[in-house]
Design a protein around this nucleic acid. Structure first.
Length: 337
DNA sequence: GCGACAG
DNA sequence: ATCTTGTCGC
């Protein structure tokens, strides 16, 4: 199993964002949404906004030239008052309602200013990778009932990611093995790009388990599989990279629509996406009010997902291997510093 | 009516 | 996901 599929392609998004911000000329401003478009996906606007608030402010950093929609100030990380003074010093007219419209640079102008072509945008490249990987997904019944199943999850403490792998027997659900790794998180959380944040630590912990001969027949991942805008959620991405059966499990639905029927304890309802039955919503036998969503990862089918996961619920909302991986990774992350 | 959106 | 205190319920 190779890890080059992720590590080699993950861009330093923060460095690129800093470059984009540095290129905003004095006397002009832009918005989080325009910067996100330069990065290749408007969806990243939220990350750009939180980054501005939390970033390590450098003396030469031009973050005061980023404003909110409509030119309103604030949330820059340096404070609205400081931002207003800096902008006025550059000749930007700052009115009570925000900066004047003509000072705002749109995504088009900003792109040409930076000489950024469409195909240079990092998130666009990552989407292309997902679309390419999607072709490699295999939907098929499991060759046989598994003898075990593992859950994987990742928790965070600052810039550190803690990945845990927990293997249980199938169908008994007895815990057989648990291990973890800690590594630096290299990419932010942006919806639909989760794999570029979490797959690297996940692969590390799975590789560690494999070295100790603890690789399970099926791996369940805390995240979507084919129920993803480009059919390449982290569970499918992981599955294709290691070419083994994977199942995606989430507490909320990323995309897809479910059958409009009553969901009884222990029951399932189909979830369709792009006209295909790729997942189910499943309520545990014990009847937790909140169900979970299963989606096909790789080398499995919807029926297989349900058959593998259903016996692994104990007293929690999530199936045991995922529940334990979540709990341990969180505990380990908390101890970090 | 439009857009949201996993962790 | 994480930041956070007490509080309601099985």
């Amino acid at each position: 199993m190779s890890e080059s599929e992720v590590d080699d392609v993950v861009p330093d998004l923060e460095a690129i964002l800093r470059q984009c911000i540095a290129a905003i000329p004095p006397g002009r401003v832009t918005t989080c949404g325009a910067l996100a478009e330069l990065l290749g996906d408007r969806q990243a606007a939220r990350w750009v906004g939180t980054w501005l608030v939390e970033h390590t402010h450098l003396e030469e950093c031009a973050c005061h030239r980023v404003v909110r929609v409509g030119g309103r100030l604030g949330r820059s990380g340096i404070g609205a008052d400081v931002q207003r003074d800096l902008l006025r010093r550059e000749g930007v007219a700052v009115l009570p309602g925000g900066v004047s419209e003509e000072a705002i640079i749109g995504p088009q102008e900003l792109a040409s200013l930076l000489g950024i072509e469409d195909e240079d945008r990092p998130l666009r490249k990552l989407r292309a990778i997902q679309e390419d990987l999607r072709k490699k997904v295999i939907i098929t019944p499991l060759p046989a009932d598994p003898k075990d199943c593992a859950g994987v999850d990742v928790s965070y403490r600052g810039q550190w990611a803690v990945a845990v792998y927990c293997r249980v027997s199938w169908p008994g659900g007895e815990k057989l093995y648990e291990t973890s790794v800690v590594e630096r998180a290299r990419f932010p959380y942006i919806t639909s790009y989760l794999a570029f944040r979490e797959l690297s630590p996940m692969l590390s912990v799975i590789r560690k388990a494999a070295r100790e001969d603890q690789l399970a027949d099926v791996i369940a991942v805390d995240g979507s599989g084919l129920l993803h805008p480009r059919g390449m959620g982290i569970a499918s991405h992981l599955g294709v990279v290691i070419d083994r059966p994977t199942i995606g499990i989430t507490k909320t639905l990323l995309c897809g629509q479910m059958e409009q029927k009553e969901l009884l304890p222990g029951g399932t309802l189909a979830v369709e996406w792009e006209g295909r039955h790729l997942g189910v919503v499943l309520r545990s036998q014990r009847g937790h009010a909140q169900p979970v969503f299963l989606s096909v990862g790789h080398r499995i089918d919807v029926e297989g997902c349900v058959r593998v996961i259903r016996p692994l619920f104990a007293q929690h909302r999530l199936p045991d291997p995922i529940y334990w991986a979540d709990r341990l990774s969180r505990a380990l992350a908390r101890q970090l510093k």
